[in-house]
Design a protein around this nucleic acid. Structure first.
Lengths: 357, 357
DNA sequence: CTGAAAGCGCTTACAG
DNA sequence: CTGAAAGCGCTTACAG
C-alpha cells in the first residue's frame, strides 16, 4: 500500500474526484484535458468548470508513467556560474517552456564522474538531454545516448545530433588581427583538456600562427574561471608573449585583473582577446572577443532536440553556428613595435589572407 | 492502452524482467533496491547481479507515483543570467544532488505571470519549491504554498519558511562609509519594485541618510541588469549625487561602464557601491560591495527545505544570513571635498555610530 | 525472509 | 460522443 501523498489529510484532487463531481467517467475527464476535440462542447465545458472549482490539475507524474512521455528535458553543463552557460540555459529553458517541457538542471562542476552520475539519475525522468561542453569520454556519451535522445553542444560525436559553435575561424581571425598589429609572439590560455572547444580554438590559433610565422605558446590553466585566469598571469608574462588569446571571456577577465594588480595595462602592455561575448562589453576596457551567440545556441539546441523527439530530425544532424571576432578596446600594437615605430602588417590586409578553413 | 515507451522495440528492462530472470517476486526486486536490510544477503546479491547484467535501473517516475515522493525540487529565479542567482543555483543544486534530489530550474524573466505559470506547472513533479526573490504577490505565493512546501529566499511572508539575506545593516554601513568620506548627496539606484530586497535596501539607506543628514535620491531602473545600470547613468549624473548605492553588482557594473563612456572615473568623479559580492572582485577598479554569500544561501535554503520535508523544521522558520560591507576601490572622498580640502567625517567614526537596526 | 495483491493517477484501444 | 477496463512500473501493508 502506498504512502499517502503529501499535502495533508485532504489531498490534491484527482481525476476520480472530478469524474464523480461531474458525473462522467475518468476517461472523459482525461479527454477533456488531453483531447477535447473527441468530446462534445458541453461535456468539455462541464468538466473544465468542475475541475476549476475543485482546483484539479492533471498529475504530471501519472501521465508520464502512463504515456511514457515525461514532458521533461535535462540540461547538463560544467559550470552554471560561467556566463556562457548561464546565457545558454536561459535560451534553452525558455524554448523548452514554450514547448511545454520542464527543464532539469545539472551542474557537473567540470568533473566527468559527476556528469556521468547526473545523466544516469536524470535519464528516467526526461525525454531527452542537452549536454553542453561535455567533459565525458565519447564512450560514456554514446552509452547514455542509447537510453535517451541526446543533443550535444560543442562536442563532435558522429551519429549524434550536435550543435557546434564554430569558433575556429574566429580564432584564426584573432591571430591575423594580432599579427596585423605587429605582434610576433602570442600566448593561448588553454581551457579544459577534455573540452572540444578548447581543442578547436587551440588548433585554429596554432595553424594561423604557423601560417603567419608567429610564435604561439600554450599556457595551461586549472579551469575556465576568473581565478584561474588571474593565476595564469605570471606564466603569461614569463612566456614573453605580447598578446594573449584566452579560452573564454571569464578567463580573459581574470588575466585583466592579474595584469592590473601588477601595474600593467591592457592593451598598453599586453593585448588580450576573449571568447563568448557575454562579458566582453562589461569589462574595462571593453574586451575584444569572439562572439558566440550563446542564448541562441541554447534555443537552437532545444529546437533540435524537439525535432529529434518528434522524429523530424535525423539522428546525426549537425548544426554549425558561426561566430565573429568583435574588436573592442583590448588589442593594440605591441609596446615594442609602438616604441620602435614599427608599422606591422596592416589590419586590413589580414582580412584579405586566405581563410584558414 | 498506453503507448509503448520510447527506446525502440527492445525497451528498457523493468522490475518484471529482473524478477523473472532472478526467479523472485517483483516485491523482492523492489526491496533489493529500496530496503535491502529486509532481505537475506544472498537474495540481495543475486538480484543486484541480475539487475546489473540486464542494465536495470529503477524507474523514477513509477516510484514517484507509487510513493508520492517525486525526489525532485524546483528552484525558481527571476534571472538565471544574474551572477547572484547563478551562484545561488550552484549551491542549491549541489546540496540537492547530495541529498538525492534532482533540481528543476525555472527562470521567470522578472515577470510575475511567468513565475505563476512555472509554479503551477512544476508543482505536480516536485516535493518542494525554493522561490528566490519572488516577484509574485503574497496571495499567489500563499496559494502555491498550500499545494507544496515552499522555502522563500529574500521574501518575508509570515508562516512560510524563509531565508533572508540581511543587507539592510550593510546598506546603512555603506551610507555611513560615504558620509565618513565627506559625501553629502547620494543616490540609490533602485532594483525591482516588487523585490523585498530592494525595499529593504532602499529603506535602510534612507534611514541612515536621514540620521546622518545626507540627501538621498532614488533613481528608478527598468531591471537589475548591466544595461539598465548603464542607462541610468544620465539620471545619476543629473541628480547631483557624488556617490551611488546600486541595488546590485550587475547594475553597479553598468553604471561604471556608463561613467567610463562619458569620460568620468570611479571613484574620482563618483563613488560607487554594489551588492552581492559576486562580480565585485572582477570589475576594474574592484567594486566596494555588500557581500551576500550567495552560494551558501542556496545551500542553506535546500537544507531548510529538506528539514521541512522531513518534518524537522517548523513551517514558519526564518533564517537570517548576515552580510558585510567590503570596501574595495570604488569609494573615495568626493571631488569637491577633496579639492576644497574638506576633512569630512573620519571613516573610523562612522563605525562608532549607533547601529541602525 | 518472501510473495500475492492492491494501489498510486493517469491514458487509450476497444466496444458501443 | 462516451465508458469499462487494462496497463504504465513501481511500493508496501498484510499474511505467511
Amino acid at each position: 500500500m502506498p504512502v499517502r501523498s503529501p499535502g495533508g489529510p485532504r489531498s490534491t484532487p484527482t481525476i476520480r474526484h472530478v469524474a464523480e463531481a461531474a458525473n462522467v467517467s475518468r476517461a472523459t475527464v482525461s479527454r477533456a484535458f488531453g483531447q477535447p476535440h473527441l468530446l462534445s462542447r458541453e461535456t468539455v465545458e462541464l468538466v473544465q468548470a468542475v475541475a476549476a472549482r475543485l482546483g484539479y490539475v492533471p498529475n504530471h507524474t501519472a501521465r508520464a508513467l502512463s504515456t511514457g512521455r515525461a514532458g521533461n528535458i535535462a540540461l547538463v553543463v560544467p559550470d552554471i556560474t560561467n556566463p556562457f552557460f548561464a546565457a545558454l540555459m536561459r535560451g534553452a529553458q525558455a524554448k523548452a517552456r514554450d514547448a511545454g517541457f520542464a527543464t532539469f538542471l545539472g551542474d557537473s562542476d567540470e568533473t566527468p564522474e559527476l556528469e556521468d552520475m547526473l545523466l544516469a539519475k536524470l535519464s528516467a525522468q526526461v525525454e531527452g538531454f542537452i549536454l553542453a561542453s561535455s567533459r565525458l569520454s565519447r564512450e560514456r556519451i554514446l552509452h547514455h545516448a542509447q537510453r535517451r535522445p541526446f543533443v550535444l553542444i560543442n562536442r563532435d560525436v558522429p551519429k549524434l545530433p550536435r550543435l557546434l559553435i564554430d569558433t575556429g575561424p574566429s580564432y584564426a581571425r584573432a591571430v591575423e588581427h594580432l599579427a596585423g598589429l605587429g605582434h610576433r609572439a602570442i600566448a593561448y590560455l588553454a581551457g579544459p583538456t577534455l573540452s572540444w572547444s578548447n581543442r578547436q580554438r587551440h588548433k585554429a590559433s596554432l595553424e594561423a600562427a604557423r601560417r603567419l610565422g608567429l610564435a604561439l605558446t600554450r599556457i595551461p590553466t586549472s579551469r575556465p574561471s576568473f581565478e584561474a585566469g588571474r593565476a595564469a598571469t605570471d606564466a603569461l608574462l614569463a612566456s614573453g608573449a605580447t598578446a594573449a588569446l584566452a579560452f573564454d571571456d571569464v578567463m580573459a577577465q581574470g588575466v585583466m585583473a592579474g595584469l592590473a594588480a601588477r601595474g600593467l595595462s591592457v592593451p598598453g602592455d599586453i593585448s588580450l582577446i576573449g571568447c563568448d561575448g557575454v562579458l566582453a562589453t562589461t569589462t574595462y576596457p571593453p574586451l575584444t572577443s569572439v562572439t558566440a551567440h550563446c542564448t541562441r545556441a541554447g534555443e537552437e539546441a532545444v529546437d533540435l532536440l524537439l525535432d529529434v523527439l518528434d522524429g523530424k530530425a535525423p539522428r546525426d544532424r549537425t548544426l554549425n553556428l558561426p561566430t565573429e571576432l568583435v574588436i573592442r578596446a583590448t588589442t593594440a600594437a605591441p609596446a615594442s613595435a609602438a616604441s620602435l615605430g614599427l608599422p606591422g602588417i596592416e589590419p586590413g590586409s589580414a582580412a584579405a589572407l586566405p581563410e584558414p578553413f
